[in-house]
Design a binder for these strands. Structure first.
Length: 419
RNA sequence: GGAGAGAUGGGUGAGUGGCUUAAACCACAGGUUUGCUAAACCUGCGAAGGAAGUAAUUCCUUCCGAGGGUUCGAAUCCCUCUCUCUCCGCCA
């Protein structure tokens, strides 16, 4: 949600920034509605003041048994006007909100300009592509040949874009998530939460999935949605709160399943478990003071990176361009992991600074020097567990169809190889 | 699922139609004094918005879970909805 004062003061700049995100110029319309709303409000407020004064007089007169018919007549006149103006104010308020709630966040000044993912900029790289003296297989080839990944069984149960894992691979998934959670809580300073996987409308409005992106979500019953990411419950923990500055920064993490309908991705990545309706993820969320959010994004990125470094898997980091960022983000880094079987880099984490965009929707502020200031929110994957599993299978595969287990996981997997 | 109770500022909580300009306490911020892992006292302190002014500031409006209604006037009365708690039932 945008600050209306900012739009009022910088209409051209606002329009230009929105254009970068594929939106039409709306500032003049916004300002016009806002102006009508405020004009209505001003008249309404003076009438309400008048009514209050007269009402007080009536109270006193009645107590003294004096005639109040003159005052009553006056109020009768004002009342109709008040009702009409109230209605008008409501209409204008709703019109304004309807526009504002659907506009994406403003890109940070360091975000590269661009149309789509091809314009993303390389930020940094870590490690090297592993060399194989055989043709590396794709993760599902490895898994299916071992009989430990089964898509047919999953489709019998639930249709396409689901998977059934078995035995060692199932255990490996559990090992990965435990490793990530321990790292983030014991080393990176995040607090672990277990949160609901079903949320109500309000929470999804708060983080920006609703009202625009309901098609990407699954519903459960009449009032609940399945979370597409733990960002939703973790960030909304502070919705409608006025925090004390001493509580900040809040750094939280949670391991949850994520549910996405992938409505806009028909036909994409249909083979394998790269793009599923259900997957698990360890999420990182930070709630910070505005002046710290830029540093916090780097810190969060490093926390996510620390997982891949420990697992010793090559990756690169891209700064997303203006056209490729998510709705609520003002700046996003994608960590892309190297997948030898795919012969490609694939997103394994997305770390975003949403600045005050979500906190305005959630009405989350903190008190500093007597003032209430909107917090800045950040979220990032630390990491997507399913895709980390894929990365391990493909990067650590051996010629005989086995998979080495990264040293960092030994504590959790208790074995040097997959089978 | 059944029955009952409730929702008031950052927190606890008073307030049953005009004397509320939302009490009091806690927390928080500033200060005074004594002093040393602090205490006592004093002062300030709900939120959102509008208007005027170069500005410090001043004035006004709205908000007591949400939305309607009654009334000259609603935190207070009525209706609808949402949520929370307690007990009973069912249940991992």
């Amino acid at each position: 949600m945008h600050n209306i004062n900012y739009i009022r003061e910088n209409p051209t700049e606002f329009d230009n920034l929105m254009k970068l995100r594929g939106e039409k110029p709306l500032s003049s319309k916004i300002i016009e509605i806002d102006k009508q709303k405020r004009e209505t409000q001003t008249i309404l407020q003076s009438l309400l003041g008048e009514r209050n004064t007269i009402s007080k007089t009536i109270g006193i007169q009645k107590k003294n048994n004096k005639d109040v018919s003159f005052e009553m007549k006056k109020i009768e006149e004002i009342k109709n006007k008040i009702n009409t103006l109230k209605e008008l104010e409501n209409i204008k308020e709703n019109e304004l909100n309807a526009i504002l709630i659907r506009l994406p966040n403003i890109p940070h000044k360091t975000v590269p300009l661009g149309k789509d993912e091809n314009d993303n900029k390389l930020y940094k790289e870590w490690g090297k592509k592993p060399k194989f003296n055989f043709q590396p297989k794709k993760h599902f080839e490895i898994g299916e040949e071992l009989g430990l990944i089964n898509f047919e069984l999953a489709s019998k149960l639930s249709g396409s874009r689901f998977v059934v894992l078995k035995k060692q691979i199932s255990k490996l998934e559990r090992a990965i998530s435990n490793f990530m959670l321990d790292k983030h809580t014991e080393v990176n300073g995040y607090t672990e939460y277990s949160v609901p996987f079903l949320v109500k409308n309000n929470s999804l409005y708060g983080t920006g999935q609703l009202p625009k992106f309901g098609d990407d979500l699954f519903t459960a019953g009449e009032d609940h949605w399945l979370i597409p990411t733990a960002e939703v419950p973790l960030t909304n923990l502070v919705r409608d709160e006025i925090l004390n500055v001493k509580q900040l920064p809040i750094r939280s993490t949670s391991y949850t399943p994520c549910f996405r309908s992938e409505a806009g991705a028909a036909g994409k990545d249909t083979r394998g478990m790269l793009r599923q309706h259900q997957f698990t993820k360890v999420e990182l969320v930070s709630i910070v003071e505005p002046q710290h959010s830029e540093d916090e994004l780097e810190r969060m990125l490093q926390s996510a990176e620390s997982i891949l470094k420990d697992l010793e898997i090559h990756y690169r980091i891209m700064t997303l361009c203006t056209g490729d960022m998510g709705f609520s983000a003002s700046k996003t880094y994608d960590i892309e992991v190297w997948l030898p079987g795919e012969d490609n880099y694939r997103e394994i984490s997305s770390c975003s600074n949403c600045n005050d965009f979500q906190s305005r929707r959630m009405n989350t502020r903190y008190k500093s020097d007597g003032k209430n200031i909107f917090v800045h929110t950040l979220n990032g994957s630390g990491l997507a567990v399913g895709r980390t599993l894929i990365a391990i299978l493909e990067n650590y595969q051996t010629e005989d169809g086995n998979v080495k287990i990264p040293d960092a996981l030994f504590k959790y997997f208790h074995n040097k190889t997959l089978i």
